[in-house]
């Protein structure tokens, strides 16, 4: 399912450049960049003193303090490094259903977030997952890499069932670095949404959950006696769909959203819910900002 091309126009990309991915915590980066890192380094902004130990660079000794205190103290500066951003895009079959398909929406979101990260020299990694980590784009830096992102996204095809826990467990097991983990999914996970998010949480990532739904308006054709087919498992369900059932379904969807939201609140996880009916630009420029994910 090819994404709409081009994903964004130039004007929108300019708007995206003014946005930042918010990180409440400092993570160790790999390269120098604009983010305050956990380590002290060679930045311009003074951070702290520490006692001199042999081998330290004499250039960082605070001689004025030595005169006053008769102690050799070393001046420490803030280290500004890049921010590791891990974007997990659910590419299970369920994401490809709906009108329009949720995946197209999620695809744009992922691309936009990646661009925001790239524009601020963050290290953006992109993962497509279903019941396992299907595809991975190595960390990218710089706006010029956005086309790799686009290519990566455009090559994604629907496949497999949703198993967030399995996929993220594999991710966490293979990496020791931490960063901002953005999970873009519809969370139609038979194992539940908590298991997967718990894995990330326990791995000390700063988590943002982007919940994409596409069924705020049930299509009119889902009425009467139907055989509903699960796109992931092919399981069927005979139903006589009446308005009461539609209402019940929407109520269940709302419950799911509420459950995810309360879970996220509980563990201070950023949660943004958007629907495919919400215009994409509005979602990026307003919804995500109000959700505390972007500024």
């Amino acid at each position: 399912m090819a994404p709409e091309s081009p994903l964004f126009d130039g004007e929108f990309l300019k708007k995206l450049e003014y946005l930042h991915v918010i990180s409440k915590r400092a993570f160790s980066g790999q390269f120098k960049a604009e983010r305050r890192a956990r380590t002290r380094g060679t930045g311009l902004e003074f951070a702290d003193h520490r006692a001199y130990s042999p081998g330290d660079d004499f250039r960082h000794v605070d001689w004025k303090a030595y005169q006053r205190l008769n102690k050799l103290l070393l001046r420490l500066f803030e280290e500004e490094q890049d921010l590791p951003i891990f974007v997990f895009l659910d590419s299970s079959r369920s994401m490809f259903e709906g009108t329009p398909p949720r995946f197209h929406y999620a695809q744009k979101i992922a691309a936009a977030l990646c661009y925001i990260g790239l524009a601020h020299l963050d290290r953006v990694s992109l993962f497509a997952y279903s019941d396992h980590l299907r595809k991975e784009l190595a960390p990218q830096r710089g706006k010029g890499q956005i086309f790799k992102i686009f290519k990566f996204l455009s090559e994604l095809r629907p496949e497999g069932k949703t198993d967030t826990k399995e996929a993220l467990t594999k991710f966490c097991a293979s990496r020791s670095s931490h960063g901002v983990a953005v999970v873009i999914s519809d969370f139609m996970d038979p194992q539940g949404f908590t298991a997967g998010l718990n894995v990330l949480r326990h791995s000390h990532h700063e988590i943002y959950v982007l919940h994409v739904t596409g069924q705020a308006n049930i299509p009119q054709e889902i009425r009467g006696e139907l055989k509903l087919v699960d796109s992931e498992t092919e399981v069927t369900l005979d139903l006589e769909i009446k308005q009461s059932l539609i209402s019940a379904y929407q109520s269940e969807l709302e419950n799911l959203c509420n459950d995810i939201a309360s879970y996220c609140r509980k563990y201070r996880i950023g949660y943004v819910h958007t629907d495919t009916t919400v215009p994409f630009e509005e979602a990026i420029l307003q919804v995500f900002r109000h959700g505390g994910f972007l500024r």
């Binding site: 079959r93 369920s94 994401m95 490809f96 259903e97 709906g98 949720r102 949703t162 519809d186 139609m188 996970d189 038979p190 596409g214 069924q215 054709e221 889902i222 006696e225 139907l226 055989k227 509903l228 087919v229 699960d230 796109s231 992931e232 498992t233 399981v235 069927t236 369900l237 005979d238 139903l239 059932l245 019940a248 379904y249 269940e252 969807l253 799911l256």
Partner: peptide, 17 residues
């Protein structure tokens, strides 16, 4: 024989039932 309609997931429909 009801007409088939593919939905993303039946999780919510099953909960409804």
């Amino acid at each position: 024989r009801h007409p088939r309609f593919v939905v993303g997931s039946l999780i919510l429909w099953k909960r409804v039932l």
